[in-house]
């Protein structure tokens, strides 16, 4: 089985909100020096979903695709150190500034160039724009079925998959024929750590780099957008927290309850 996982390099979404600043003129966030790029956490879990299938049969192949510009090698190679087989980078300044439409179009073209695939995995959404459309978009362009927000993926008989899809009050179980696309949610569980052996192996592997011309797409990045950002701004927070304090924590607790009552909150 050939599996392809799409991984995006993002700025660490776990960074403290106080470090967040906007570059409103260019419609993007400023990268604070203390915030490091990482693999989008949902994409890392998508790698995990593929590797769990590979764990059962080592002959299965996991290819990673990352799209961007000036990608940090130690970051984009992380899936290799977790156990993926190869890394393809769609790396060029022209890929900058795309929206979900531009990204899905380029990724779908790259997957077509790879050729044979059985399962494409994506994270349910990336942590910068939180759009959650690229997976469905790739599936639509390639004309394959998609199941989004999955928490479990197993290969069953006849080249089919059994997928558990998270819903508001539980989950759906689906049977999906391959080739198909699955997006992975955090309910899958934590992604594995890179092993020392994996890091050594990854350091020896060189990524394959494809430019827009290599994937046969005329318009990429900002030029391929379907959506336009009218305005990007930070909402104003009132930030008027009444911190209740007293001589002891127990007294503060009682005072808090009393205040809530006075303010008709309880």
């Amino acid at each position: 089985m050939n599996m392809v996982v799409c991984c995006k390099q993002v700025l660490d979404p776990e960074a403290a909100p106080s470090t967040f600043k906007l570059d409103a003129a260019n419609n993007r966030m400023v990268q604070p020096p203390e915030v490091k790029p990482v693999v989008n956490p949902y994409d890392e879990q998508a790698v995990e979903a593929a590797l769990r299938i590979k764990d059962k049969d080592k002959t299965q192949k996991v290819s990673i695709i990352s799209l961007g510009n000036n990608l940090v090698r130690d970051v984009v190679k992380k899936p290799l150190s977790m156990g993926a087989d190869e890394l393809i980078l769609l790396e060029d300044a022209a890929f900058d500034g795309g929206d979900s439409f531009a990204t899905a179009t380029a990724l779908a073209a790259a997957i077509k160039k790879i050729g044979q695939f059985d399962i494409i995995f994506c994270g349910r959404q990336e942590s910068e724009w939180d759009d959650g459309q690229v997976g469905s978009g790739i599936a639509e362009i390639l004309g394959v079925p998609s199941v989004t927000v999955a928490k479990k993926v197993e290969v069953i008989d006849g080249g089919k998959l059994r997928v558990e899809r998270v819903t508001a009050d539980g989950y759906q179980v689906l049977e999906v024929s391959t080739p198909c696309l699955i997006t992975i949610s955090n309910e899958l569980g934590e992604a594995r750590y890179a092993t020392l052996k994996g890091i050594m192996a990854a350091s020896k592997k060189q990524p394959v780099i494809w430019k827009p011309a290599d994937i046969g797409v005329d318009k990429v990045g900002a030029a391929a957008r379907k959506s336009k950002i009218v305005k990007l701004f930070q909402p104003v927070k009132e930030g008027k927290c009444d911190i209740v304090s007293a001589d002891s924590p127990a007294e503060a607790a009682v005072l808090l309850a009393t205040k809530l009552r006075e303010n008709k909150v309880i």
């Binding site: 979404p13 909100p17 967040f20 906007l22 419609n27 966030m29 942590s127 910068e128 724009w129 939180d130 950002i229 009218v230 305005k231 990007l232 701004f233 930070q234 909402p235």
Partner: peptide, 9 residues
């Protein structure tokens, strides 16, 4: 967008 840190139109 950006995990709720900003909004975009």
């Amino acid at each position: 967008v950006y995990g709720g840190n900003a909004r975009a139109i």
